[in-house]
Nucleic acid binder design. Sequence first.
DNA 1: ATGGTATGTGTACAATGTAAACAATTGCAC
DNA 2: GTGCAATTGTTTACATTGTACACATACCAT
Lengths: 200, 200
Amino acid sequence: MAERGGPDAVVLREATRRAGVTPNAAYRHFADRGALLRAVSDVCQGRAADTMEQHVDSVIGASSSVDAVGDAAGDAVCDAAVDARAMLRAVGTGYLAFARDEPGLFRTAFSVPDQLANSFDTAKAGAAGRTPFQILSAALDAWAAAGILPPERRANAELYAWSAVHGLGMLVIDGPLRGLSAQMIDGATARVLDMVERGL
Amino acid sequence: MAERGGPDAVVLREATRRAGVTPNAAYRHFADRGALLRAVSDVCQGRAADTMEQHVDSVIGASSSVDAVGDAAGDAVCDAAVDARAMLRAVGTGYLAFARDEPGLFRTAFSVPDQLANSFDTAKAGAAGRTPFQILSAALDAWAAAGILPPERRANAELYAWSAVHGLGMLVIDGPLRGLSAQMIDGATARVLDMVERGL
DNA sequence: ATGGTATGTGTACAATGTAAACAATTGCAC
DNA sequence: GTGCAATTGTTTACATTGTACACATACCAT
């Protein structure tokens, strides 16, 4: 239901109908519709994490193989920086790919009020066990380790990178940027990630 | 109704109740609930524009008076750059101030699917006649004119700056960043704007 | 005067969330 | 094994919402 229709479409009675039970049976499992929606939202965040991991993995794999083929041992630092940048971009593109491929799930994932403290809740984790926030966090740790993110800027950097990418996602799927061509969206994605890379 | 409760709270029957007419009278003015919501959304964008103009004006006023007092004629270019940066920051802080002060209106303003082409619709304009998009656009024009935004990066720059600020707004008001202290939010706002300034 | 347009009313129906009381099933203690 | 308590589901009921259809009224122009 969330997949097509977003959060507003996740409806208690329809859920029970699909489950083959009467409407009120739902109240044995969820306090109210809000609780159901929160549970669905958590699952959606897990799905987002899956897409992000997938993008990160593909980049890591590619980068490693290239490293293995033609490199001397001198520029390990440079490699770390290149890898860190690629990883953060993969996190961003994965996030936005999820938004574009599954707009209903994306909107459901982030349409329910939450607290930053819950960003580590395992209920929001993907198959790999990490939540979207943790995936982003790891990419920024890699930046810091590679020395391309000054320590004084590391604090809360998740929020700033996240804001940029999340904003683009929202504007694209149900904001004023909807209906842009795929190329336009690809371009905007690249440019927003450029901005984040330069600006973090 | 939008003010407290956001888009979900703008309800057709309640509106007619407050207007003192029967529910179906609404259908003489709006095709359906969606049309009503779109109209409300436009008004909300106008309110956002008002807040943004207000922030921009206060900055322009301050900057001009400083200029008038103690300057030779040499660094007009520098002044233009300083002004342009201040203006863009004011646009961003205004946008986020609106999100924080009127979260219901903010969510209503941007929760209805729209097209970029409609971003100039006068229905979305504030008292000064400009829509939020146009206000942002003007600030970026000032950047370009001051020479601090390379021409090849000017195209669609609205989208990138907007994404960053919009994302922070969404995360703060009903995303995982809700409940952050006012200082935290102020800090995050400043840092996101730093990122935009460096990254555009 | 008359006819058309704008606006509002009355009645009606389907869908939703949710409360309260009741029933069936399950698991465990004795 | 028996009985009790927790778990899960059902039935009935109600308020609220969006919306369709037919009907009424007021006003304005010809």
